[in-house]
Simulated scan of single mutants.
Amino acid sequence: MEQAILNLQHLTKSFDGKKILDDLSIDIGRNEFVTLLGPSGCGKTTTLRIIGGFATPDEGKVIFEGKDITNLSPDKRHINTVFQKYSLFSHMSVGENIAFGLKLKKKSKSYIQDKIRYALKLVDLEGFEDRHPMSLSGGQQQRIAIARAIVNEPEVLLLDEPLGALDLKLRQDMQQELIKIKNELGITFIFVTHDQEEALTMSDRIIVMNQGLIQQVGTPVDIYNEPQNAFVADFIGESNIIDGVMPKDCLVEILGCPFPCVDTGFAPNENVDVVIRPEDMEFLEKGKGMMDGVVTSILFKGVHYEMKVQANGYEWLAHSTIAYHPGTEIGLYVKPENIQIMHKPVSAAQEVIKKNE
């Protein structure tokens, strides 16, 4: 992480007696793309609102470039926000929307025109200044909202689920667009989403949250490959999460079968959570794996097949580029380095999310 531009120190916030943020502390680096990721109600949007000045914490401080801005109004911060609902003024042209903040700051007409042209070029909408927002597509409106934010030259840009209303293809295009804009501007982006793929695709660092607490902070690769608890493993991508026992270092017993692993530092016979990603399940001939199973279902996912395999009383999720049809008897194998061992949850916030919630 580069030098921190923003320090959130011990933030606590409650609404109607319910604690939304619980002693939350984060350091965010200059020029970073940081994503706050978690389920609805985890506190990520509240955190963003506190950073932007739209909410005040019950306890804690927001430090920006070494100065306490906790009680500073939004217009006094070098921070701008792009919301999911773009909040464009329908009675104004695109150019007037982009110029709105600059006019409030009483900038000259020539300065404003230069900024409008620059911002529209940056978001690939040159020549749109006289159009009206309601005549534009959702993706174009999104880019106008970003243009309106960046002309004010913020040092931090906050994005509150800005892609949530877009269809899949447009959403993917905008993900690449945002990365390009961030790199060209060289400013800090703080992005809120509950979409795991979006977070993995765009972020320098991901902050996984649940019930007002930070569960893990790390790069997308770290978060995906080395989840710190069952909640993170379950929330980031698909996983087989199974109860296990560690008889000794580098050996875990799963469903009565011994599996070599690479993890150490657990107490003898400690109960643990075991995470195995579907893509790490390998299919062998029956009798040649760590356990035998029967394929119960198969779905074609484009780049791979998704299969369910019943083995030792557990229904495993497995991915393969080779189709194994229901009824096929196979052996299952997992390389030691692909087995993640974690301590059992110590709080409700670390529990696996129920899939039907």
Rank of each mutant, 00 (worst) to 15 (best):
D114W: 09
D114S: 14
K115W: 07
K115G: 02
K115H: 05
I116P: 06
R117V: 06
R117K: 15
R117N: 14
R117T: 13
A119P: 08
L120K: 06
K121Y: 08
L122C: 08
V123E: 00
V123T: 03
D124C: 04
D124I: 01
D124W: 09
D124K: 15
L125F: 08
L125Q: 09
E126T: 14
E126Q: 14
E126F: 05
E126M: 12
G127L: 05
G127N: 04
G127A: 05
G127K: 03
G127E: 04
G127T: 06
F128G: 05
F128C: 12
E129H: 04
E129F: 01
E129C: 01
E129T: 01
D130W: 00
R131E: 07
H132A: 06
H132S: 11
P133R: 06
M134Q: 15
M134T: 13
M134P: 00
M134K: 15
S135I: 05
L136W: 11
L136Q: 07
S137Y: 13
S137I: 08
G138V: 10
G138K: 08
G138N: 10
G139P: 09
G139V: 12
Q140W: 07
Q140I: 06
Q141L: 00
Q141N: 08
Q142P: 12
Q142A: 11
Q142I: 11
R143F: 01
R143K: 09
R143T: 02
I144T: 01
I144G: 00
I144H: 00
I146M: 15
I146C: 03
I146H: 03
A147M: 13
A147E: 12
A147W: 03
A147P: 10
A147V: 10
R148W: 13
R148L: 09
R148G: 05
R148K: 15
I150S: 03
V151M: 03
V151Y: 07
V151L: 11
V151D: 01
P154Y: 13
P154M: 13
P154R: 13
E155Q: 15
E155A: 12
V156Q: 04
L157V: 06
L157C: 06
L157P: 00
L158T: 05
L158Q: 02
L158E: 05
L158D: 03
L159D: 01
D160P: 02
E161S: 07
E161I: 06
P162T: 07
P162C: 09
P162H: 06
P162M: 08
P162G: 10
P162N: 11
